[in-house]
Amino acid sequence: MTALAESRGVPAPSAGMTLTKKRARQALLLVAAPTILMALFCGIPLVSVVVFSFYKPWAYGMKPGFVLDNYIEFFTTATYLQTLGFTFLIAIIVLPLMVLLCYPVAYYVCFFVKSERLKLYILLLCIVPFWTSALIRMVAWLPLLGRKGLINQILMGIGIIDEPAEILLYSEPSMVFSMAIIWSVFMIGPIYFSMAKIDRQVIEAARDLGASAWTTFWKIIVPLTKPGLATGILFVFVVMMGEFAIQKFIGGGKTTMLANVLIQQQGLLQWPAASAVAVVMVLVSIPVIVLIFQFVNLRREL
């Protein structure tokens, strides 16, 4: 093509694409500042924790060095390994629970609410808490779930139980439950987003072709909302990994998650050990995140 063009006295394509090049240059110029900043802000913590995780632990702080002590310590201490396992256990329970809790909400709003205005209001109702303080939302569970909390008082008042149920607060079930409620917007949002994109005619076509409501749900709606599910799970998972306050407020500090170990070590000025935990957290997150990305091309979804 180039040879042909040149033989006819027309400039070669590479020489001609000045506008195209100019536009690409403009885009690169725009994208430069955010990219450099983000690379720095991402790079700083990652490089820091990796470097410091190899430092020598010391009574107060650390000494430069290159030792594996912190990792050996982590992987030979039963409680740390338990914590690692517990973190994943919580994730394995919370994520499906959240799908179960949030999918019907999105489904109802998307397919059963007819008025667009009402749809918007219900969605806003679900999103607004997300725009207020998560910390406050955690604290707000206390007067409800506590030993002398509202739920216990009601249950005792109507005679279902004789003494306060301890399981409501400072227990794993209450922790899992409040996590699911507090982060629900991360799940409802993406699921609704992909549900709203489903062409109604596809559903009607399926019904026309004789699929039952149940079959339509499983064979049409669920597969088409898979990207939304994956996105929601991704958001919840990453937030959960870096979170320590719910465990503190509602878990009562009985069972700890990785993030709590990190905060604890940091509080004791054991920075190399804390760094090792941080590195482990990142390393165990990577395969999960990669796995989730197999189900969704986030770039195309937006």
Binding site: A5, V10, P11, A12, P13, G16, M17, T18, L19, T20, K22
Partner: peptide, 22 residues
Amino acid sequence: SGFEEPTAGQILIAGRDCTHLE
């Protein structure tokens, strides 16, 4: 209109070469 740029060739508008103009 200038939204796309020709890979080769020339575009004149009112006699003016606009091939690579915005």
